[in-house]
Simulated scan of single mutants.
Amino acid sequence: MSDRQMISAPPEVQDLIDGGALFAVNSSGGKDSQATLITVARLVPPTQLLVVHADLGEVEWHGALDHARAQAEAAGAPFIVSRARKTFFDLVEHRHRTYPAASAFPTSAARQCTSDLKRDAIVRDTRRYADQHHFTQIVTCMGMRAQESPRRAQQAVFKRSARYSTARRDWFEWLPIHALSTDEVFSVIHAAGQQPHPAYARGNERLSCVFCIFGSRNDLRAGAAARPELFERYVELERRTGSTLSQSRRPLEEVTGLSVAEAYALHARSLT
């Protein structure tokens, strides 16, 4: 393992470890959160760890929740499943009814899927766990990396969250693997004797929703072949709302190069 992969805690993070802070790792079951948990678990005692998975229901890759749970067990950390009070389809339908002239699907500028379905539920349950176990300092650990986008490259590796801190609780955000490349992320996973979610073997670059607004063509094709019934539902929703999931503003069938019938046929061939 390279020196860059052997990440040490910055001084301000080490002070929080020594001070007994709760380190809550947001785990989607994807490669980046898996490498994040492996890294954090090397530095933080299990009694100060918490792994939180935002369950996205039917739009999530099968096995993502179980994969995240297995990682928590490997780290010896408590595991919480957070669920929003709405689904992805609820969100899209509401946007379509309320703002018929706008995109019904979330966009890069209005990522309600992240805030409403993941972040808010995770913060709610992390706060509850901290209160129950008398933690007054919380460090949220996330797997965002500089290589992913110019915007993420500019994110602070460590900061205090003014939004979630209160008079009786300090809340911080830490990006432990911010400097790592994709290859280094997989190396961290394999060096720990673990395997990434099987979707990566299909060629996926991302893992969370089967059909993500930021998904590459390969991701979306893999999703269509794995879950043709879900692909069909998204295609129908695009047609009915006149909006597109993809940020390219092209329909899913065009982006993937697959009709719904072809997706079902691909899936059937994969089972033989």
Results as ranks from 00 to 15, higher is better:
114 T>F: 11
23 F>S: 00
231 F>A: 09
208 S>H: 10
222 A>E: 02
166 T>M: 06
216 S>A: 05
45 P>C: 15
227 R>K: 13
47 T>A: 14
266 L>E: 06
164 Y>A: 08
72 A>F: 09
232 E>D: 06
270 S>Y: 12
232 E>S: 12
50 L>P: 01
153 A>R: 15
250 R>A: 10
80 I>S: 02
24 A>W: 01
109 A>S: 15
164 Y>F: 15
229 E>L: 11
262 E>G: 01
158 F>G: 03
162 A>I: 08
37 L>M: 07
123 V>A: 08
29 G>E: 00
144 M>G: 11
193 G>H: 14
211 F>K: 09
154 Q>M: 15
139 V>K: 02
208 S>C: 13
144 M>Q: 12
139 V>A: 06
262 E>C: 03
3 D>V: 13
122 I>P: 01
243 S>C: 10
255 V>F: 03
79 F>P: 04
269 R>D: 05
257 G>D: 09
245 L>F: 07
257 G>M: 15
114 T>W: 04
24 A>P: 00
45 P>K: 14
176 P>T: 11
48 Q>C: 09
120 D>F: 07
177 I>V: 14
98 T>I: 11
32 D>L: 00
213 I>R: 02
11 P>T: 14
214 F>S: 08
119 R>F: 15
175 L>F: 09
22 L>P: 00
30 G>Y: 02
114 T>C: 10
141 C>F: 03
159 K>A: 11
98 T>W: 04
208 S>N: 14
201 A>V: 14
46 P>R: 08
58 E>N: 12
25 V>A: 01
19 G>P: 02
144 M>S: 07
184 E>P: 04
10 P>S: 05
187 S>R: 02
74 A>S: 05
79 F>Q: 01
65 L>Y: 06
213 I>T: 11
12 E>N: 08
30 G>N: 00
174 W>Y: 13
204 N>H: 12
194 Q>K: 14
54 A>D: 11
245 L>E: 06
95 R>P: 06
120 D>P: 00
269 R>H: 05
158 F>W: 09
11 P>F: 04
260 V>Y: 04
219 D>N: 09
143 G>A: 02
233 R>E: 13
118 K>Q: 14
87 T>W: 09
90 D>W: 15
254 E>P: 03
256 T>W: 01
102 A>V: 11
134 H>Q: 14
257 G>K: 06
244 T>W: 05
190 H>N: 13
202 R>A: 07
247 Q>G: 08
156 A>H: 08
169 R>P: 04
153 A>F: 09
183 D>R: 15
54 A>S: 08
84 A>L: 04
165 S>N: 06
29 G>H: 04
208 S>D: 07
108 S>Q: 13
170 D>E: 11
